[in-house]
């Protein structure tokens, strides 16, 4: 799975596109872990381009959240499509993970 990254004032923003399901969730996790630096004070997943996430994908988010909590790194997700927003809301993940409407808000909350 291809991801794009940009750093804004210490916060790493990761953009991904397509679907995250059982077929690529391990790849997705691996490529995210590979780009996170020790210096990053926060990590934002920009899900603007994600149109579906399965429970395997939600597990990846959970794993990331746990890892980042362990290193005192902030974590947030932003720009959910309506389909992904619904999945977050049904599964209750929006109560566990910080979800922002825009990338700007997400980055600001972690700076």
């Amino acid at each position: 799975m291809d991801i794009n990254t940009v750093r804004t004032g210490g916060v790493l923003v990761i953009k991904a596109e397509g679907r995250i399901d059982g077929s690529n969730s391990a790849d997705f996790l691996g490529s995210i872990q590979a780009v996170i630096d020790d210096d990053d004070t926060g990590v934002v997943l920009d899900f603007g381009g994600i149109d579906y996430i399965s429970s395997a994908g939600l597990r990846v988010i959970l794993l990331l959240a746990k890892e980042l909590r362990g290193t005192n790194t902030g974590f947030g997700i932003c720009s959910l499509s309506s389909a992904v927003q619904e999945i977050f809301s049904i599964s209750g993940f929006d109560q566990i993970i910080t979800v922002s409407d825009t990338e700007e808000q997400a980055v600001k909350s972690l700076q």
Binding site: S89, F93, Q95
Partner: peptide, 24 residues
């Protein structure tokens, strides 16, 4: 965190139960 059930009426119409939150 589960998808809400569907309530089906005897005339065939149906409604989803409203979401009440709750985490997996």
């Amino acid at each position: 965190g589960h998808n809400p059930p569907l309530i089906i009426h005897s005339d065939g119409s149906s409604d989803f139960l409203p979401q009440i939150g709750g985490v997996a």
